[in-house]
Amino acid sequence: MTSPLPPEMMEAARGWAIALRDPAFDDWDGFTGWLEADTRHAAAYDAACDTDAAVVALFSTPAPIAMPEPRPAPSRFSRRWVAGGGAVAAALALAFVYTGSDPASAPYTIATRAGVSQTIDLEPGTQIVLNGDSRVTLDRERPRYASLDRGEALFVVRHDDARPFIVDVGAAKLVDLGTVFNVARTDEATRVAVSEGVVMYNPDSDAVRLEAGKSLEVADGRLTVRSVSLDAVGSWREGTLVYDNALLPQVVSDLSRSLGVAVTLSPDLRARRFTGTLAVKGSPADVLPRVAPLLGGVASSNDGGWTVSSRARP
């Protein structure tokens, strides 16, 4: 397409592409100076970024859908609802929006820092409310597509038979059939809850049809469908968290995401469950000491975070 650029110039361009990718990069004058030194440097830098984007785009290739274990029989279904979950919130200095793509599509990523949610309007009648410490990848060329990379989001989707709205969650695929639904993704599990309409989970393989009032959890390769209170779906938006027999590690990671602080749980509480509604509006210092007793514990603050334990630390 253009005459090849010298290898050492490309090496330098890659060096800048690496440096700029670092969140802490601030040598903008140095970068300007390098660009000014040779008029070809801007093109070399763009080429390095294009290559990087093309390679990295490969990492989001959908993996073959694999469910290591067969779906449990319907008798295993139980009436409980587990909301949220996730890695301990790592507070970012700012909601960071960056872009990266191959030329055929135009993906971009929106990430929120812990404790701050963001509403993304995709097209009229369709929006995504992204919870704190969460990330979605969207595509300017595909307004009816989203990938939940981590965390939790509520999808409000105007249904269109001709153009189904598709959400990728790791290797799994969700297709809306007219819908408001919530998706939470953690390292251990993916949870989907539907409050309006119908969502299809992995239409090509599992083909699980989730109607309003149903939730689905996939953890350790096992897929479980449960009932869910309609009010619970996306309740984090209103500052309340609603649970029915949820394990405490999940409750605590939801608290972490909603409050924007790291909240850890002492090991002796990990197997406990909670049923009820938690109001989480306010600062961590307001909320946690009030909420912890409801979970059967006590909240204490430590270096930049909080711990919920069964006894106050000495």
Binding site: D26, W28, C49, V97, S101, A106
Partner: peptide, 23 residues
């Protein structure tokens, strides 16, 4: 929103705009 390094943020946004144009 609170922005920790406003100047770096401006440069970053400008660079992103150039990448968008290029794409």
């Amino acid at each position: 929103g609170p922005i920790a390094e406003p100047l770096s943020y401006l440069f970053r946004a400008t660079e992103n705009a150039m990448r968008d144009r290029h794409r």
